[in-house]
């Protein structure tokens, strides 16, 4: 049985949740076994996991911390021949803890389904998107943490028998407060990202960036110097030393395209660069480019997209 840990946010699933089940299903089909999804008992529409191939769905009262959940999973892995966890911020703390507690071999930053089962092999990103590593996981219990949005969904219906289970979690920290920006799309899960750099001249000019993001249903991001000077919060800093993103569409405005910036965004499926300088390195990494002044191009793009959205 392949075990998928399925995360939920405010008691509802997101794309990464279904992607975890889809991943487990692909793996289970390859090895002729079943999928067990483990998720929080308070999540709404638990049955939707069956659509993506969950044969069994085990629900429980989840611990608040990643280590707590890891210790719960440790007591629920009997019969598991593999574990799948989405590489969300919670998953990034969870997967290594599970590997340490359960003695499984772990691949994080995984970008492919299993390539082979003997030895168990997958591909993963290394050197900040400058390399692709093919890695073998040895031992009884391969554990996969995958990059959200890199695997995709596949609908394959299964029984999805729901049962409630008990497991004690061992929390070593206390969660004092959680604050989530309301109405904002979080950067790691965004399918479209609108990002701007020092070319914007000052924080007061971000209005048009936010407008563009709103029309596209996008998250906003920025280059490192922009967050260092305090024009935008650190949580928007993308790149090799910030958040790594792989949306379907990345729009870079007034960003030169330094190697460290590109390292964190080049996995995006489609890249658009808007820059006054025709020699800006970003144009080499982009699929589409506009040489022009952001202060003229962006408002026009907002209008044009509004018109497009209205007629589509």
């Amino acid at each position: 049985m392949i075990l998928a840990f399925v995360e939920s946010w405010n008691d509802s699933f997101k794309k990464a949740s279904f992607e975890a089940v889809s991943y487990a299903k692909t793996w289970a089909d390859m090895s002729g076994t079943t999928v067990r999804a483990i998720t929080s008992a308070s999540t709404a529409d638990i049955n939707t996991l069956a659509t993506y191939g969950a044969d069994e769905i085990h629900t429980l009262e989840l611990s608040q911390t990643a280590f707590g959940v890891a210790s719960q999973l440790q007591s629920l892995i009997e019969g598991a021949t593999g574990i799948v966890i989405a590489g969300t911020s919670f998953g990034k703390s969870l997967a290594p803890a599970v590997a340490a507690l359960c003695g499984g071999a772990l691949s994080t930053n995984t970008t492919s389904a299993p390539k082979s089962l003997q030895p168990f092999t997958v591909e993963r990103g290394a050197f900040s998107s400058k390399g692709i590593e093919t890695i073998e996981l040895h031992g009884r219990l391969p554990i996969i943490s995958f990059v959200p949005n890199s695997i995709g969904l596949s609908e394959k219906s299964a029984a999805g028998t729901v049962s409630n289970v008990q497991a004690n979690g061992n929390d070593l920290l206390k969660v004092a407060e959680v604050s989530i920006a309301k109405g904002k799309i979080s950067l790691p899960e965004a399918e479209v990202v609108v990002s701007a750099g020092r070319g914007l001249k000052g924080p007061e000019n971000w209005g048009m960036i936010e407008e563009l993001a709103e029309v596209l249903g996008a998250a906003t991001a920025c280059s490192k110097p922009v967050s260092d000077i305090g024009w935008r919060p650190h949580s928007e800093h993308v790149g090799q030393t910030g958040i790594q993103v792989n949306p379907n569409l990345y729009i870079a405005i007034g960003i030169s395209g330094a190697i460290q910036h590109l390292a964190g965004v080049s996995a995006s499926k489609t890249i658009v660069a808007i820059n006054t300088d025709p020699e800006a390195p970003f144009f080499k990494a982009a699929d589409y480019g506009i040489v022009g002044d952001a202060f003229e191009v962006v408002p026009k793009l907002v209008d044009s997209l509004r018109a497009f959205k209205a007629s589509n």
Partner: peptide, 22 residues
């Protein structure tokens, strides 16, 4: 250790850039 790096490769080079008039 439990893992083995079997191979490293560079990602496929990006295709050409389509320029659009401002």
């Amino acid at each position: 250790g439990l893992t083995k790096a079997a191979n490293f490769a560079k990602p496929a080079a990006k295709g050409s850039t389509t320029m659009v008039d401002a």
